[in-house]
Structures are given as C-alpha cells and as structure tokens.
Simulated assay, not measured.
Amino acid sequence: MRMIRIFLTTLGLAGMLLATPAGAADKPGVTLYKNPQCGCCEGHANYLQQHGFKVTVVPTHDMSLIRRQHGIAERFEGCHIALVDRYVVEGHVSAPAIDKLLKEQPDIKGISLPGMPDGSPGMSGQKTEPFVTYEIGDNPSADKVFVVE
C-alpha cells in the first residue's frame, strides 16, 4: 500500500511538471492594469497565464493617467495596459508577439494592438482579418508595424 501511495505521489508530481507551460520559468511577470468592470481584460490575463506568464491584475479607474505616464498615444490605446519587463504592452496582444518582443529586445517603449479586435486573445467573436501589432516608439507621429498575425 505504501508503494502505491509513493508511486501515485510521484506520478502526480510528474503530471504537475508536465502541465507547466514551456518556458514559464523564463518569462517575466506581467502587471496588467484594467478597468474594474472589464471582463475581456480578465480573459486576456487568463490567456497570458496559459502561455506561461505570471500575471498580476490591477483594477483601476486611472487608465488615462497610466497611459500618459507611459507615453501611449491615443491611436495605440487598447482595452488595458500591461507592463512586461521594461516594455509597455497595450491591448489584446498575442503571447507570440510578446515573446518576440522579449526575445529581440528592440529599443522601443512597447507594442500595441489598438482597439478591441474580435477574436483577439481574451476577446469573443471571430477573427475577420490579420491583427496588426504596432511598435510604440519615441516618435508619436510614426506608425511602425511590429508584427502581423
């Protein structure tokens, strides 16, 4: 009986290790600021967690202040703003785009998927066209594409 318990305990621990997303230990934490009433932001936080990020959600009514503090132009605004490593991630940006940002470490403020596109990570609905994620740089009048998905 004792051997069976040891075997099942070992099997359970192995299962937990296998269930951990690949590279989760390598990914930085995410602080996601959102309006307290917004549910799709929670959906995006869950999506990021499923892709190995440890997410801290901070409900706030000061979204415009946070965006101003991080230099986010209005045209780049999404539903929520996240801080990842030294970058700002605005809106429902995909995990692969964030992974690319963290791997390449470009000299920009961050990236943005403006608006709330249907079918984007955390949003309901169907994706109807490719998502365009933009670089957020120091030049507020320049739009540079970071990735198209």
Rank of each mutant, 00 (worst) to 15 (best):
M1P: 06
M3G: 13
I4T: 05
I4F: 10
I6S: 03
F7I: 01
F7N: 09
L8V: 06
T9M: 10
T10Q: 04
L13Y: 07
L13P: 05
L17Q: 04
L18Q: 03
T20P: 14
A22M: 08
K27E: 02
K27R: 03
G29P: 10
G29L: 13
V30I: 01
T31C: 08
Y33Q: 01
K34V: 01
N35I: 05
N35Q: 08
N35K: 06
N35L: 11
N35W: 08
P36F: 07
G39Y: 11
C41T: 03
C41S: 02
C41W: 04
G43V: 02
A45S: 00
L48P: 09
L48M: 10
Q50C: 03
Q50V: 00
H51W: 13
F53W: 07
F53Q: 04
K54P: 08
V55R: 12
V55Q: 04
V57Y: 13
T60Q: 14
T60K: 12
D62H: 15
S64P: 12
L65S: 10
R67I: 02
H70K: 06
G71N: 07
G71M: 11
I72E: 04
A73C: 10
G78Y: 10
H80N: 05
H80L: 08
H80E: 05
D85V: 03
V88C: 13
V93A: 08
S94F: 06
P96F: 07
A97H: 01
I98L: 14
D99F: 02
K100Q: 07
K100G: 06
L102V: 07
L102C: 08
E104P: 05
Q105L: 10
I108V: 09
K109E: 01
I111N: 05
S112E: 02
L113C: 04
P114I: 03
P121Q: 04
G122T: 01
M123E: 05
S124F: 15
S124M: 06
Q126M: 15
Q126C: 14
K127T: 00
E135N: 03
D138G: 03
N139R: 04
N139S: 04
D143W: 10
K144G: 05
V147M: 06
V148I: 15
